[in-house]
């Protein structure tokens, strides 16, 4: 469904991606892990054109992703994104955040969009907060609203950019639970994360990136318990010792 082919990207002299290739199938949950600065967020942002890439090709359902092309808006309505810092619209209520895209981008009728929005809020356990403003919610609640907002676009895939990194530890569980139920429902998900437990239990496949390259990829359990590469082993050791 998403095909990343030999992507190169530099910020000035700093080469952050040095030929990344990843293929993601429909219904697959892929976790991208790696040390900070490895380029994992950048590659995620390239998939829906928030970031431009210098060389290579990204295809979404056979359509080339080019942030300057006219179809980028079409691609973005099919591939939603959940951000580390939630990025909810602070001047709109929780419900308005969720139905903004369906109403103003997809031109859905207000009534059906609202109905659908409330159903999604219920799904993430926040229907009682529909009329609240984002500033009145905890980080974990905001992130669940952000997930509902992404779902409201009825995307074929959702990209998660370190969705729990900005959360207090006790709020992480609720967000991961929502993500887990999405995975169980068959949503295609690409997740940049530091949550090894989540990756182990939910991901079909884990990709380990370091210094702009894919070092190793494979089935989640296998890669996380028996990493083949030295760098992967080192990284996992460091991550587990810090827990």
């Amino acid at each position: 469904m998403i095909s990343i082919q030999q992507i190169h990207k530099a910020f000035g002299d700093n080469r952050v991606l040095k030929g990344i290739s990843i293929d993601i199938q429909q219904g697959e949950v892929v976790c991208i892990i790696g040390p900070s600065g490895s380029g994992k967020s950048t590659i995620l942002r390239c998939i829906n054109g928030l970031e431009a890439y210098d060389d290579g090709k990204i295809l979404v359902n056979g359509h080339v992703v080019d942030r300057d092309a006219n179809n980028i808006h079409w691609i973005r309505t099919h591939v939603s994104m959940v951000f580390q810092r939630f990025n909810l619209f602070p001047h709109r209520t929780v419900l308005q955040n969720v139905i903004e895209g369906p109403i103003f981008v997809k031109k859905e009728a207000v009534e059906s969009a609202t109905e659908n929005g409330l159903r999604l809020l219920d799904q993430v356990g926040l229907s009682h907060k529909a009329e609240a403003y984002p500033g009145q919610l905890s980080g974990g609640q905001q992130q669940r609203v952000a997930i509902a907002r992404a779902l409201a676009m009825q995307p074929q895939a959702i990209l998660f950019d370190e969705p729990t990194s900005a959360l207090d530890p006790e709020l992480v569980g609720d967000v991961l639970a929502v993500m887990r139920s999405l995975a169980d429902a068959g949503m295609t998900m690409v997740v940049v994360t530091h949550e090894m437990g989540f990756a182990r239990e939910v991901a079909d496949r884990v990709v380990f990136m370091d210094q702009g390259l894919v070092v190793e990829e494979g089935p989640a359990r296998e890669l996380l318990t028996n990493p083949r590469h030295e760098r992967t082993q080192e990284f996992l050791k460091r991550v587990s010792s810090s827990l």
């Binding site: 829906n48 054109g49 928030l50 808006h73 973005r76 951000f83 990025n87 895209g101 981008v105």
Partner: peptide, 17 residues
């Protein structure tokens, strides 16, 4: 915040919207 623009872009909004 630039994140606001990115969030709007990520739901398919165009520049003027």
């Amino acid at each position: 915040d630039a994140g606001q623009v990115e969030a709007a872009q990520s739901i398919g909004m165009r520049k003027w919207m």
